[in-house]
Design a protein around this nucleic acid. Structure first.
Lengths: 147, 147
DNA sequence: CTAATTTCTCAAGTTAACTTGAGATCAAGG
DNA sequence: CCTTGATCTCAAGTTAACTTGAGAAATTAG
């Protein structure tokens, strides 16, 4: 039995594509070691690392931000309980903020259901000033909320 | 004074870039009429149409889906109160679903804070099977939740 | 040991949501 | 009427998050 998991093993365990795992490496999200032949070898803790990444992505967080969180964990050793607790708490705050933003928008929309959006002046949706356009090209999905 | 708003006027009113408004047109999100010179002319109701688009985008909904909602509104006439009420209600349901998904993930994460994510078997985050990978390339942000 | 897998690297393609630029035409003020 | 600014079209660039493909080397199964 070889030392550690191969990239294919990790792909099977996480459900990710092999190409995705390699891609994450270029973004400093996982840092495997290499065997004599140059093949990547992963530890069991890397499964959870990737699970965290997948969960965070499901919430719409950009990879760059996720990578930032993970930078708080050790590279090749298994993280301690304190490590994961700290990162989980920081992440929870982001989720709370996102839920709050959604609830606020839901309230505005409720007002719109009542008013039928017929009055431009009183409609909460018609509120151009507080929605600032992001600068530069590229995808926009939720990036506004993740700062 | 010319009939309707120019694309520049609309850009000023909504905060969007002129190029973005033209882009939305190729995606059937706004359908302006043209004057003799071939320039686009918009109605006042198009301001609210774009406001709706911006709000929906802020929530992470993809343009294609937003375009689908807007297809229920008349092209060149101002929508009626019933039109907007219907679309707002459908939209509200999506928001409710998204909030519910976030709250579920928050609960899982709370469990993780307690356990320190040290047990692979009991950790809610480590749950590869229920997170299916999207097929094909392209951006991933929140697209999983918007079905 | 050989054949079949798997993995390696590196370059290029993909999607979404736009932007930027070029060259031409339209519109508005003086 | 003329000039300045706004618009027009169309092609190509941008970012994020990956995938696909080619050609070569390593691993594993038999």
């Amino acid at each position: 039995m070889p030392q550690g998991l191969s990239i294919g093993d990790l792909a099977d365990r996480t459900g990710l594509a092999v190409s995705a795992i390699r891609f994450y490496e270029t973004h400093e999200i996982i840092k495997p070691v290499r065997n004599k032949g140059g093949h990547r070898r992963y530890g069991r803790h890397d499964i959870r690392r990737l699970s965290f990444v997948m969960a965070a992505q499901k919430l719409g967080f950009p990879l760059a931000e996720i990578a930032g969180h993970l930078r708080a964990l050790p590279d090749h050793k298994a993280p301690t309980k304190a490590d994961w607790t700290r990162i989980s708490k920081a992440f929870r705050k982001k989720i709370d903020a996102r839920i709050a933003a959604l609830e606020e928008l839901r309230e505005k929309l409720d007002g719109c259901i009542g008013c039928g959006c017929l009055s431009l002046k009183s409609c909460a949706l018609y509120n151009p000033k507080d929605i600032k356009a992001q600068e530069g090209p590229g995808p926009r999905n939720l990036t506004q909320l993740s700062g």
